[in-house]
């Protein structure tokens, strides 16, 4: 099934999909890891809910990172001439942002 059409210079799509967006995802991934450290370093009396607050913030940062990386995957596939939902070879995916993503990658989008 054909995905949404993107009409733009292939070089630009490739640059955004394989470098810029993964880099943004990397910023969020690192921020999420730091938030995880903040969550685990202090508790507080039961019911203070500070931890739940920090965890909610962490989840939203992680979501931004995942959304950025998933968008990058879609663009990288398009730049390589595939549909955004196609399975592609690993070397066509965005460059590794060198971080461990805090939430599981979307298996549909990141399947090789």
């Amino acid at each position: 099934m054909a995905g949404p059409e993107v009409v733009a210079p292939t070089g630009e799509i490739d640059e955004v999909g394989r470098r810029l967006l993964p880099s943004i995802a990397g910023v969020y991934a690192k921020a999420t890891q730091s938030m995880n450290a903040a969550c685990s370093s202090v508790g507080g009396p039961a019911g203070w809910e500070i931890l739940a607050f920090a965890q909610a913030a962490q989840r939203m940062l992680a979501e931004s990172g995942d959304n950025s990386y998933d968008a990058a995957v879609g663009l990288a596939k398009i730049a390589a001439g595939y549909d955004s939902t196609d399975n592609v070879n690993a070397d066509l995916l965005p460059e590794d942002p060198d971080v461990v993503f805090p939430t599981p990658p979307n298996p549909k989008l990141r399947t090789l």
Binding site: E49, A52, F53, M60, A71, V73, G74, L75, K108
Partner: peptide
């Protein structure tokens, strides 16, 4: 403090979509 935190937490969870960019359909959702 719980009241204050829960208020902010409730707001956060009630406006979740405003705190993270939407994953575009370009990504193949």
């Amino acid at each position: 403090l719980v009241t204050l935190v829960n208020r902010d937490l409730g707001f956060l969870l009630g406006h979740e979509k405003d705190f993270a960019p939407t994953r575009p359909t370009i990504a193949g959702a």
